[in-house]
Structure formats: structure tokens, C-alpha cells
Design a protein around this nucleic acid. Structure first.
Lengths: 139, 139
DNA sequence: CAGTATCCCATCAGATACTG
DNA sequence: CAGTATCTGATGGGATACTG
């Protein structure tokens, strides 16, 4: 087990494939990385988070925060004042995940142009001409 | 733009947040990383892929492969024989994504124990005692 | 302010059956 | 062998209304 390459049949790395699924289930949803990245700059209260993540609903913000807190990626601190004030802050674990996501973002920024080009090429050669035989008999 | 930290309000990094979404939409699904990692060891034909990724249905394998091909992450080569033989192979782009995913897997393997511990702690203190007041008035 | 509680629907993915 | 086609249940997430 000196080299962990995670290549070949999944049955050869059942543990690792389970771990990957766990992380991807965590960060693969619509809002988690946005919340984590937003908190990457420092602690924020609920309403500020909602303002900093455009489009997120109260429901999804609350759900996302609860899951992240449960997994120890952030802390929730409620101040017994009126009106209430609740502050969310990344833990060390949360910050380390943020860094891991950043490296993925680096790949994304570096290669998304290449991917976009491939998609356009595919639309032209595939939809435009080659597969016409298959597409024409649609109803 | 010397430092790309992806921290703070999402409105401060609209481009990057879009790129992240694109990658996560690609690798965040149930099968993509498993297929990519499986092909990381070398080219495989359709039936071998299905055998190497336990639980995947024909439908999902086909869909996943099509999307990966469209994005230029792998190539599909059909040999005009009978019975048919189709071989899938990662492109350079696909291999670079595989590496990016590996670093995430490294984080997962290194920290999943910590996360699991947090979850257990949460279940004991949260479900077990503290939030009883809220839980008891369930219907 | 910081959440809960419901309703509702669009998409995802599994199972099954069929085909070049 | 390498797919396609169709049906269907699960679930993710938006909109809206209400509360301590």
C-alpha cells in the first residue's frame, strides 16, 4: 500500500472509493462549497451568509450549515441577545477542506476552456452532421 | 488577481464559482469519478468497465461515458468487428482530472476519521439529550 | 434576526425489456 | 457485445408562510 493510485477495478480500492463518495456527497451538492468558500474569509452571521451566497434559500442555507456543523467543518455560536445573533466559523478541519477544494478549483480554472472547446466541437460534428441518421427518426 | 483564494462573498469571484460548479457538476455525480479512476489504470472495453464498477447499470454507464467523451475526458474507439468491441481510454485532459481527484481523495482518506468522530459526537450530545425539547413534540 | 414547517415539482438514477 | 427505450420511485431543492 505504498502507492495509492486509485486506479483500476473499484474492488481493488473499496475503502478509498467509499471515502471519495463521502467527500463528494458532502461537497457535490449545490451550496456546500459556496458556503465554505464564503466562510473562508472569516466568520459570518446567518444573514450575512445569505447575502454573500446569492440565490440560496433559507431552507438550503440552514440545511447546509447543519450538516457542516455536524461533520465538524464549522462551528455555530449563538449569542443570547435580542435580536438574536448567530455566527458561523470554519474549524481547522473546514479550512483544510477549503484548501482541498481550492486545488480542484485550480484545475477547473486551468482546464475549463479546454472542456468548453471539446463540447463545442462535439456539437458541431455530432449534432450537426454525423449522427443525423439516428436523430431523424425521432417520432 | 495575483492571489486566487476563493474566499468571501461569491460575488467577488463569480467566474471561479462558475468553474467550480462546472467541475462539481461533472464529478459530483454517483459514477463519474469511479469510471475515471477505473480507466486510470488503462483502456478498457464497455463490458470490462461494467464489471470493474460494481453496481453501475448499463444506462448510467452509457450516460456517464457519453458525457465524459463529450467533454474530451476520454475517447471512444469502436472496432468494426463482430461481435462489436468498443474501447474507452482517458485523454490527457482526463488523466489530469484524475490526478486532481486523487488529491481530493488524499484529503478524504486523511480526514474521514475526524469527520466520522464528529458525527458520532453530534448524535450523542444532540439527539441523545440536548435537543429533546424540540424532538418530543413530533406529532 | 434566525430560523421551521409544508407543499410541490424537476431531475436523477434504478429496473426492466428490447435491438443492431 | 454494446448499447437504446421506457417506466417509475426516490430525493434535492425552490417558494411560501409561519415563529421564538
Amino acid at each position: 500500500m505504498a502507492e495509492r493510485t486509485l486506479a483500476g477495478p473499484c474492488t481493488a480500492w473499496p475503502q478509498d472509493s467509499a471515502f471519495i463518495r463521502e467527500v463528494l456527497d458532502r461537497i457535490g451538492d449545490k451550496w456546500t462549497v459556496l458556503v465554505i468558500s464564503t466562510l473562508g474569509a472569516g466568520p459570518l452571521r446567518y444573514s450575512d451568509l445569505q447575502a454573500s451566497v446569492p440565490g440560496i434559500s433559507q431552507r438550503m442555507l440552514t440545511l447546509t450549515l447543519k450538516e457542516l456543523e455536524r461533520d465538524g467543518l464549522l462551528t455555530r455560536t449563538a449569542f443570547p441577545e435580542v435580536p438574536p445573533r448567530v455566527v458561523y466559523e470554519l474549524t481547522d478541519l473546514g479550512r483544510s477542506l477549503h484548501e482541498a477544494v481550492l486545488s480542484l478549483a485550480g484545475w477547473a480554472a486551468g482546464h475549463h476552456g479546454e472542456i468548453a472547446a471539446h463540447r463545442r466541437a462535439h456539437e458541431e460534428s455530432g449534432v450537426g452532421r454525423a449522427k443525423t441518421n439516428q436523430l431523424l427518426r425521432k417520432h
